[in-house]
Amino acid sequence: MLIARTPGALPLPTADALACSAALRSRIVAEIDAAGGWIGFDRFMDLALYTPGMGYYAGGAHKFGAAGDFLTAPELSDVFAQALGAQVAQLLALGAPQIIEVGAGSGQLAADLLLELERRDRLPERYCILELSGELRARQHATLSTRVPQFLPLLRWLECLPEDFDGLVLANEVLDAMPVHLVVWNGEGIAERGVAVDSGQFTWRDRPAGGRLRERAQALTAACAIAPGYLSEISLLAPAWIAQWAAILRRGALLLIDYGFPRHEYYHPQRDAGTLMCHYRQHAHGEPFYLPGLQDITAHVDFTAIVEAGCEAGLELLGYSTQASFLFNCGLTEILARTPASEPLRYLPLASAVQKLISPAEMGELFKVIALGKGISEPLLGFANGDRSATL
């Protein structure tokens, strides 16, 4: 469980980690100087997370699991993949039997999911992993080689989107790590909050918003009755990414799992400071300038924007629900029952993990599951009860 802390109370990194962060910081400062003294926050976030060899997702820091910066659902327990496997098996039966997992983290989900699909006699013909980080590709290959070497002939690693695809595109906690713009609605209009350097330190600086960002912000002003003094994020990248997949996908589905809200909840009047959050050593805080390259920077997902982008590009909304509802629909209760309560050493850790996955106070309500697709002829079992599509 993440603990909210101020940066001053966070664990100290090693000297080597500090040196890597300092190098990335110098790289960002140089780009700000070259750009005339200001870059949008989306660019700062992109550099902090994805600069080759130095960014958070492109460097060597341990990110996932209890020893990393945050826990994802697949790291909690294999019951997540076992339940997800029911939905994946149905989609593979309805479309082409291929999977692309985007941003596969440590490889844990791929290993657990392949084992569950084997149990269901529904292994894909190919399991591709789209991963931009060479360091993470190596970790994934190590995980899968150790845990499921029998499936290595099915596996392929991709470094870019394919030209076309039939099958399932699976993405767990990918959208939240896509760079976002910061926008301020003030008495003078709509401003984009960016990053400058003052006395050697990163600082916030606002400029009038322009182009597509201003258009999106103006539309939100009317749709959500946003008042002056409001700060939030707008993602232009995530909807564009969905539209890219819509052009690539010939038949099949996108199954996306992430934390976020429908638009009317995302831009609620009480959420006037946005959703930006940083994760470091199982602690959460709100200071994105802290040790660039050593911490994750995320923002919640506007699922209404995701659906709009997909539907405008030719996809169909197949379902939208909380993670808890989705997992129950996929047989989580029956999966838990496979482990007898009379064996407490096995059952109690499993029950604790399931509680984190489904509890409204943990991941069950905040995390959502959404499916968009083409040529899918049957209702998806993961959304049989508790479908919240009408809220988008």
Rank of each mutant, 00 (worst) to 15 (best):
L94N: 00
A93T: 13
P162D: 11
A371M: 03
G55Y: 02
S342V: 10
A17C: 10
R388A: 15
S106D: 10
A171R: 03
S352K: 14
T221M: 10
V301Y: 06
V301W: 09
T14R: 13
F289I: 05
G68A: 13
V369M: 08
D302V: 07
A30R: 12
A384W: 00
A110H: 09
E131P: 01
I39W: 03
P288M: 06
T6W: 09
P262E: 08
R119T: 15
S77W: 05
D42W: 03
I335T: 10
A22M: 03
E75K: 07
N172C: 11
D258S: 11
A247C: 02
P7V: 04
E192G: 02
R193D: 02
D78W: 10
D164W: 00
K374F: 06
D272Q: 11
A61Y: 05
I32Q: 03
T275V: 07
L161M: 13
G134H: 09
A9I: 00
T203D: 12
R5Q: 13
L92N: 04
E287A: 15
L113M: 11
H285M: 06
V354N: 05
I3V: 15
E233K: 04
T298A: 09
S389M: 08
P162G: 13
R27P: 01
L237S: 08
N172M: 05
